[in-house]
Design a protein around this nucleic acid. Sequence first.
DNA 1: CAGTAAATTTCGCCG
DNA 2: CGGCGAAGTTTACTG
Lengths: 225, 225
Amino acid sequence: MRIVVARCQVDYAGRLTAHLPLALRVIMVKSDGSVLVHADGGSYKPLNWMSPPCTLREGVAEDGVVEWTVTAKKTDDTLRIRLEEVIHDSEHELGVDPGLQKDGVEKHLQELLAEHTSALEDGMSLVRREYMTAIGPVDLLCRDAAGGSVAVEIKRRGEIDGVEQLTRYLELMNRDPKLRPVRGIFAAQEIKPQARTLAKDRGIDCVVVDYDDLRGLDDPSLRLF
Amino acid sequence: MRIVVARCQVDYAGRLTAHLPLALRVIMVKSDGSVLVHADGGSYKPLNWMSPPCTLREGVAEDGVVEWTVTAKKTDDTLRIRLEEVIHDSEHELGVDPGLQKDGVEKHLQELLAEHTSALEDGMSLVRREYMTAIGPVDLLCRDAAGGSVAVEIKRRGEIDGVEQLTRYLELMNRDPKLRPVRGIFAAQEIKPQARTLAKDRGIDCVVVDYDDLRGLDDPSLRLF
DNA sequence: CAGTAAATTTCGCCG
DNA sequence: CGGCGAAGTTTACTG
């Protein structure tokens, strides 16, 4: 990884055209050739960048200024960096990273709810997790206290897209005589008002689930720190 | 901006729990307090990070290792970085960045299509751009050669979500006696087969538009390089 | 490899 | 400040 701090101008042409006026910035060149141009603020997104696979060619512009041209391997995307003044330039061998270990995403929420379907509704039992349909897997297929089929869509944050998704599943499943009638439950840690309104309009029930509560029902096992 | 290259371990607890095993990485500390932990590969997304506003507290762990604790101002998100070995550590005053100048996004495509509605269909005329409905603005409301209302949804890349969005608008607009009947046109620089199929199923026409052609119809003005 | 959904999404606009 | 949609989204998963 090469790290350069420089007063620079940047132009990008590809899926859009963009320009960065002359200013001091940090440029990271990763070993796979990818380049990030960072300012001293904003979030983790660089001002401009080139994703791998790409190649960096170091050259000199007509006016004598050092100019980097980064071109994408497949597309004709181009990033041009004019380095007017280099403040810092260093290279570091980092090696391959072991990578991030995650915990707590939707998948885990789905596992917990599959184990504790009663948290969705009294008398609810699990039929199948990841019940396959022609257009994709339904998170949970359940049977309610009255013996009716229930399709459950689980999200961390419940928004309109999730309701649309569940609606498509329900439409399809209700064409199947062996399942029909199937009603829907939209379960999430948090449900946006718009999603709740749309769900109500579609006859879909909303259930807000607490991740920590569900975890408490479970074996209180590993916590990272 | 502070740049540190170090052999480090990272733990994050917040919206999820995550861990990075001991390895050499680059750590950027921006002047707003935000922290990025980068590996020497992958795209522009850091392995782990903390978004501003947040505060960094430098301390020493029980075993004597330097440990940074970054905490978010509002939430209780915490990023803990154990710096086992520091290879590089430098600070640079970058100042405020003038920011990125963009060109060529969906907004521009919408402007161009609003100016040249005939590119959508012969005899088409514009009624309103960003026509407001209760659930959001329709990109273009037009009138076709026969005098019928047409709602146009514009995307750079036409995918299923866009068709769903237009469907919701159409459903709502067709309840309005003053507008009814309204048909839909899904316009994009590229339309995925699945989106095209869904659109056809919903009675929505698809139009592929060429950004450069539209631009050619326009005043051939500024190009950045 | 393509297609689809999630993301500690981030970013920008508009009320 | 919150809601909502776009993004040069990126990333992960699945068929």
